[in-house]
Design a protein around this nucleic acid. Structure first.
Length: 507
RNA sequence: GGCCCAUUCGUCUAUCGGUUAGGACGCCAGGUUUUCAUCCUGGACAGAGGGGUUCGACUCCCCUAUGGGCUACCA
């Protein structure tokens, strides 16, 4: 089939977009771009009870942050020819197709209340509303047309159910899994439409919209695989088999430990984000952390996610969005669920932090400094950044790695004092101050040369001097090359720190 | 319970009947270093089990086990 590739990401606005949803959106996007197709964003808000304010904006913002561009629908520059793209706003569209099924005898009206259904389920083990049981239920198949009309005109609520013929092998061609066959007897007469709000359910709305929006490929999570045969049937009942999209069901993202689908709880429990952006639940005020606020680069998140369930077949690990687009294929999506490995996610961010231009990283760091009330010229910030960035995973780590450049230590690491601060240390450091005080060129190389010559001349222990020196400057046994530090903080500050250490460290 | 999907190092994965089963994260060791980290080098670590098919199975088939998903007037 040679039709234009059109895919959609169709989340339900019931809360923040889960990271698994992000991956689904990403794969849709990569597929669309690869084949010069269209990426649509449609909001599936047919369940008015579960609507959460702000969720839709969140979805749009998250995709935008990640660089997943929407060509058509919600969040697109121009809405597109199939507007509206919010199912609640498409309400008038669906009724016609529901009636079409009803008129053809492929669906029927049912009056059973939720309470009645519950009691049936309690009464009959494994109760399923289907060919075997619909005869004992209250519906247009068991009561007269007059009574149906009567009940409706009396304002009684009803649903429309699909009438599934039993004992038929329904085949679903899945681009990732191959042919999946399900016997129609195990599918129940799903509700397609509810009179209470005049809206279709997911299954109906999904099929109707995918048809009307000319969707060519449905790429969605594996949790939809069991209902795919129902959708196939719906396309057939509606007479749209020829236009039916191709299906691809993605493997799920699993918990890092143990088993099961990755959930919000796991993030809280294991201490990593499962959402792209921070989110505050409008009802409970509960907040969930996001990758963006945790300091991730969107490119790193995209790269990380792209490899959770797909691989290029090469040994390449770092991919730009364009490289992903060029190399992506559904055939190379794996079939089994992928456990979410947060450590690897950090590794990706580390890589991106190293590979980005130093100016860009320094600029981000400068904003962090400003937030802390530290004003430094960008030249100096860039120098410091280049000294410490290789040890940072996130931009925020730069502060942890370099705060001593900006703020003199006020305490000295106890263990290091024990190990490095000897009885003779104060005298030696006082001597060091004298040596440093007369250096004109305080550049790293020159200072190092002079200090080392002094150490050699006096036959001091290099390690002993240097470690005490470091402790004075940093307060901890960490940090870059000592003379890179002294060069940046300058002679006066260096001397002040040594003197302060001498006066405050007592054995 | 029923139905569906899946199963290679701890994790993400390569392998599309013949390989010393490869890479990456993590882990361990060594090296670099005045410290910590980075980095470099090396190492340990895998085909769930049982039957077939085949000259030959990680690869194909079946069974079992295990894991996951679905089973709503939720998506």
């Amino acid at each position: 089939m040679n039709r234009k590739v059109r895919v959609r990401f169709a989340p339900s606005p019931t809360g923040p977009l889960h990271i698994g949803g992000v991956r689904t959106a990403l794969y849709n996007y990569l597929f669309a771009r690869k084949f010069n197709g269209d990426m649509l964003l449609r909001i599936e808000d047919t369940d008015s009870a579960r609507f959460v304010p702000g969720a839709e904006d969140y979805i749009v913002e998250a995709l935008s942050w990640l660089g997943i561009e929407i060509d058509e629908g919600i969040g697109a520059k121009t809405q597109g020819m199939h507007a509206p793209y919010r199912q609640s706003e498409r309400k008038p569209i669906y009724r016609k197709y529901v009636d079409q099924l009803l008129d053809a005898g492929l669906a029927y009206i049912a009056f059973d209340t939720p309470a009645e259904l519950d009691s049936k389920r309690a009464e009959i083990a494994n109760f399923q509303y289907d060919a075997k049981t619909r005869g004992i239920m209250t519906n247009s198949l068991t009561i007269t047309a007059d009574e149906v009309a009567n009940r409706i005109s009396n304002g009684e609520q009803y649903v429309v159910r699909i009438k599934i013929e039993p004992n038929e092998e329904i085949k679903v061609q899945d681009l990732i899994r191959g042919e999946v066959i399900i016997n129609s007897s195990v599918i129940d007469d799903k509700v397609l439409f509810k009179s209470s709000d005049g809206l279709p359910t997911y299954h109906m709305a999904n099929v109707v919209d995918d048809f009307l929006m000319e969707i060519s490929h449905v790429i969605r999570g594996e949790e939809w695989l069991p209902s795919a045969p129902l959708h196939v049937l719906l396309y057939r009942y509606l007479g749209w088999t020829a236009q039916m999209p191709q299906f691809a069901h993605l493997p799920l993202l699993l918990k890092p430990d143990g088993n099961g689908k990755l959930s919000k709880r796991d993030g809280d429990r294991l201490g990593f984000p499962v959402f792209p952006l921070n989110w505050t639940d409008p009802k409970t005020n509960e907040t969930s952390s996001g990758y963006r606020e945790a300091g991730y680069f969107p490119e790193a998140v995209v790269n990380f996610l792209s490899l959770l369930g797909w691989n290029s077949g090469t040994e390449q690990e770092i991919f730009s969005m364009q490289e992903l687009i060029d190399q992506f294929s559904l055939e190379r999506v794996s079939k089994s669920g992928a456990k979410f490995d947060y450590e690897k996610g950090k590794w990706f961010n580390h890589k991106y932090l190293q590979n980005k231009p130093i100016e860009e990283i320094a600029n981000l760091f400068q904003h962090i400094l400003i937030d802390k009330g530290i004003i430094e010229d960008s030249d100096k910030v860039q120098k410091i950044t280049s000294l410490v960035r290789e040890r940072a995973v996130f931009v925020n780590d730069l502060w942890l790695q370099s705060s001593f450049f900006f703020v003199a230590p006020t305490t000295y690491d106890e263990k290091t004092v024990q190990k490095r601060w000897k009885a003779e240390t104060p005298d030696q450091l006082t001597e060091l101050c004298d040596v440093l005080a007369v250096i004109d060129d305080f550049g790293a190389e020159n200072t190092e040369e002079i200090v080392k010559a002094w150490i050699t001349a006096n036959e001091y222990n290099l390690g002993a001097i240097m470690n005490a020196f470091r402790l004075s400057l940093v307060g901890e046994p960490k940090g870059p090359h000592i003379f890179d530090i002294t060069a940046i903080i300058g002679k006066d500050e260096t001397l002040a720190r040594i003197r302060k250490a001498i006066s405050s460290i007592t054995l």
